[in-house]
Amino acid sequence: MSVVMITIATLVVLGATAAVILYAAAQKFKVYEDPRIDQVEAVLPAANCGGCGFPGCRAFAEALVKADDISTLLCPVGGAAVMAQAAGILGKEAAATAPMVAVVRCNGNCDVRPKTNNYDGASSCAIAASLYGGDTGCSFGCLGLGDCVDACQFDAMYMDEKTGLPVIIEDKCVACGACVKACPKIIIQLRKKGPKSRRIFVSCVNKDKGGVARKACEVACIGCGKCEKVCPHGAITITNNLAYIDDEKCKLCRKCVEVCPTNAIHEINFPPRKEKTTEEKTEEAPAN
C-alpha cells in the first residue's frame, strides 16, 4: 500500500514541478506576435510560392502588418481581391493592380528556327545558356530544356513536344514570376492579362540585325519598324533591332499585328478577324 502511495506522491510532485518550470519558461521566452499576422495569413493563398518577394506567405503577412504603406506589396497569386481583403484587416490602402499573366516571347519552333547543333549537356537551360548561345542560329531564343516548367509550382506550364517551346496555361498561371526568374534568356515576361484576357505582344527577343535574325528564324522580329510607325498610340519602341510593346499604352487595336512581315507580333484571345483581312493573310503567307 505504502509503495503505491509513495509512487503516486512522487509522480504528483514531479508533475507539478515540471508544470511550474514549463510555465515559467513559456512566460520568459514568450514572444509577442501581432494577432493580425495570423488573420492576414489566413486570407493569403498559402501557396508559399515566393512570388511576392518574401520567403513564404507568413513572411509576407508579417511584412504587410509591419509596413505602413503597402501599396508596393502585392501577392500575385491572390491578386487585387486578396490584397483588398488583407488591406481591410489592416486598415491600409492596397494598390489597385491589374491582373498579370506570363507570356513566352519566343515562337521559334523547330520548323521556323532550324537546329544548327545538338546539345548534349545536362538538361538545364541555365547550364546550356552559360555554355553557349544555343542549338539554333538564334542566341536569344528558347533553349527548350524546360527550366521554367520545373520552376512553376502551379502546373501552369508544359513543354509542347512538337514546337519544343513552353506553353503557359492561362487559367492556371498566377503570375508569381517564378518562370521569369528561371529563364536564363529572359524570354518570359509578366504582362497585363488585359480586358477579356486579350493582349498583344512581340513574341521574340532577338536583338541581332534584321538579316541575321531572319536567317536564324523565320518568325524573328527583324526590327523593321513597321509596327512602330503604324501604332497610333505610341506604344511600340524599337531598341537594338527589337520591337517592344508597352502594355500600359497599348489599346489592343491590332494594327501592328497586321503589318509585321514575320508575324512576330502575337494577339491572344481575340475573335477571328473580318473576312477581308483573313484573305489578305492567306494570300501573303506563301510569300513569306
Binding site: 537546329k115 544548327t116 547543333n117 545538338n118 546539345y119 548534349d120 549537356g121 545536362a122 547550364i127 555554355l131 553557349y132 542549338d135
Partner: peptide
Amino acid sequence: NKLTVSPS
C-alpha cells in the same frame, strides 16, 4: 552533320 555541343 550537326555538331554535338556539350560542356567539358
